[in-house]
Nucleic acid binder design. Sequence first.
DNA 1: ACATTGACTAATT
DNA 2: TAATTAGCCAATG
Length: 104
Amino acid sequence: MDEEYLEAVLDVVAAIPAGRVMTYGTIAEDLRDALGRGGPRQVGTVLSRAGSGVPWWRVVNASGLPPAFKREEALAVLRTEGCPLSPDGARVRLGDALWWPGDD
DNA sequence: ACATTGACTAATT
DNA sequence: TAATTAGCCAATG
């Protein structure tokens, strides 16, 4: 994985507004469209290595569930940011929170 | 070069 | 609604 891809991922993630989220799959699609390679798992790998400075909690899987390690913490932050959560507060309401570049 | 693994997804049970 | 299965692309050892 070269820097170009890494940069592209971080760029997209950084562009997600507070209170909205994107799925790994959607990001992967955009990047595949732009760079011609990559998949959902690659996005996950990049974020896992990206470390601090990246709002990784605004990226969720297709079920609206944040990464397993810190899902509780992630959900807490999302709630703070006003992100629409499902009634049980355990997952993101993708129907309302899902965002992609230009959606605003 | 081969096998295993992973912050995924979609279809099936 | 939740668990299982098979496909996926690249990184890692």
